[in-house]
Design a protein around this nucleic acid. Sequence first.
DNA 1: ATGTATGCAAACCATTTGCAATGAC
DNA 2: GTCATTGCAAATGGTTTGCATACAT
Lengths: 172, 172
Amino acid sequence: MKQIDNIKLKEQVREEFTAYLNHHKHRKTPERYAILDHIYSTKGHFDMDNLYNSMKQTHFRVSRATLYNTIELLLDCGLVVKHQFGANVSQYERAYGNENHDHLICLSCGEVKEYKNGNLFIPSQQKKLQRFKISYYSMYIYGICSKCLRAKNKEEKKTKSLENKISHTKKK
Amino acid sequence: MKQIDNIKLKEQVREEFTAYLNHHKHRKTPERYAILDHIYSTKGHFDMDNLYNSMKQTHFRVSRATLYNTIELLLDCGLVVKHQFGANVSQYERAYGNENHDHLICLSCGEVKEYKNGNLFIPSQQKKLQRFKISYYSMYIYGICSKCLRAKNKEEKKTKSLENKISHTKKK
DNA sequence: ATGTATGCAAACCATTTGCAATGAC
DNA sequence: GTCATTGCAAATGGTTTGCATACAT
């Protein structure tokens, strides 16, 4: 069932890409379709290194240069979205058939989690932006994740009990 | 009047920074305060090159290494916010006393505009994020700005009239 | 046949790092 | 006096670029 959905999705996406390539008079090379297909074969975020390595393992290896070229096209036609959370590498994510979601980024460990918001982007706000044609938006919420919070609390407890001991000793 | 406000703001910010430095047992060097002061002397976005060059022109020159060191501290204590819109350089922005706003980023010309939203971040949503302690958030809205939209429309009109002429000629 | 797209390797450039000298504590 | 911080210069590494070759049109 899900399998079938994904095949359908891939077809739709391929068509959209073809339309884009035609309209802009770009060539329809096998590399470009292979990359698109590969990106739409997995969910979640990826970076160029991920993509390069995982494609190398398939029968279709493409150069890094082509990867960068093609991702540029995919960004331009809106099939892929680019993120730059604090780290040095850019992260990418497929955009078609991908529900809009925010990103929770932990400032401590750097982990990025998706968070499906309700309908954050209220139509009334779109009105105010008449003079700006919105393609998409990204919401990044920075903070401390539960795991790091717990670790931090532990740490503080330790420090406090240590401080108490010291002041206790001093009093003596 | 505004002058005075800014002086007050700078004082508050300096105090907050001092508290942070004390708490983390970092040294209170003149460079660090000079950088903080400089950042809070101007509004809007800046990148490291901007900052470096504009500080070079004042009596207080600091090295790039120190700039990067200090900005790290300022990010950590929340006095500065970092943005990575599509370009290769990171953009920074002072965070204290700076109303929360979204960023409209033009995919065509790369211009970044601020957009003061209402209260986008509704308390009810915070509830759902109990397990994540929010420090701040960034909303990036990508699209085409009014200037580029107009340019694009013009272009398309031109192309169409040209196409018409050609098909007209062919018919003949 | 033409010229765009690919792959490779070199170049680029923002950021990071190593280390000697400085100065905050 | 001690050791964190500064400044300089070199290193790093993701991304871009130049160019010869391949191949979509």
